[in-house]
Nucleic acid binder design. Structure first.
Lengths: 195, 195
DNA sequence: CCTACCGATCGGTAGG
DNA sequence: CCTACCGATCGGTAGG
């Protein structure tokens, strides 16, 4: 028989996830203890374990929910745009989804290897789903690119986008949308002149 | 009185540093224990502490020696080249220095926040020395760029270069030099057409 | 330079 | 008897 759960169980779980992501981003997966996470969530440690069976399950949920949301955002970008407009829209969608997700993004980059192999592969499969639309529109934008160049070119764009969290300041003189437009121009004009 | 040290003290220390960088890259700073590092280096734990006074000192030496070497490589790039040739040379120099330095690079990206504030700032100062020549040549290549655009454009290039370790396979069909040339073309042609 | 340890804290779970 | 926790402590291991 199914357990009865508090009516706000899902909300509480989500709140714990966000608190844990912030602490893991700050201290690393091993440095952020379940005690710290529990304390920050105003829970006892057994109370925390009521929501997540293990520290590993918590990390998996952080990464899985983050990447699932990114994938949904990318999948929602209209497919019938012209290639150039579509790449702009994909770049803006990804940057917008990264907004306020620095903690999860950092956990993804730093702590994915802390998960067991099968869970890592589940996460990496979602990463590939996110990359695929970019790869396809890049191939459409420059048909001269040879297959073995497509991954390096696509990953160059992801380098730009995934590195942004290390230096971008929302308080600076450039908005994230402006940066998306800058990246789109930089990359599109460079791409056109390849190889 | 100064202790007498083994004639190969510095070599042994360097070997420990490389072993430690590999283990920290694999397991994270907190996940790589001093016992693991000692065992891998065929040392007892107190033996390891003969070479490094603390785990923190070991991490600092990994990052400091890595970034000092990068800075020297960048500083050795001729200053009298034309801007376009100079940017190509800077890109190739940085990628060449990253070769076989994935462990140190990963430690830099993931574990810098594990150091105390002052040591972090010492490392970040070297990072700025590495970035500065890129910034200057980018400004020379496109004088239309406004000051507040210079950091985003420069960091876009560093995103490309610093992300490379996550996907690049030396065994693939593209060499690191070829990738450097691809990045130079992509970035230079994009840069010219900004803003 | 070793074995043998320490104070503390880890992730996880017992009884109530 | 249930769920939803608590205070206390488990076996192991961390850095030193």
């Amino acid at each position: 028989m199914a357990r009865i759960r508090a009516h706000d169980y899902d909300d509480r779980r989500r709140r714990i996830l966000e608190i844990a992501a912030a602490l893991i981003a700050e201290h690393g997966f091993d440095g952020a203890s379940m005690s710290m996470i529990a304390a920050r969530a105003s829970l006892s440690k057994p109370g925390l374990y009521h929501y997540y069976d293990s520290k590993e399950a918590l990390l998996f949920d952080i990464l899985h929910s983050h990447l699932t949301a990114l994938r949904a955002t990318i999948a929602a970008v209209p497919g019938d745009l012209a290639p150039e407009a579509r790449l702009r829209a994909l770049i803006q969608a990804l940057l917008a989804a990264y907004r306020d997700a620095d903690d999860r993004h950092k956990a993804q980059i730093n702590d994915l290897p802390r998960l067991p192999r099968e869970q890592q592969q589940a996460i990496k499969a979602i990463e590939r789903d996110i990359i695929a639309p970019f790869r396809e529109v890049i191939a459409a934008l420059n048909p001269r690119l040879e297959p073995h160049q497509l991954t390096p070119v696509t990953m160059s764009l992801f380098g730009i986008l995934n590195w942004q969290y290390t230096w971008f300041q929302a308080s600076g003189r450039m908005s994230l949308e402006d940066y998306g437009e800058l990246v789109a121009r930089l990359f599109l004009d460079g791409l056109k002149s390849l190889p």
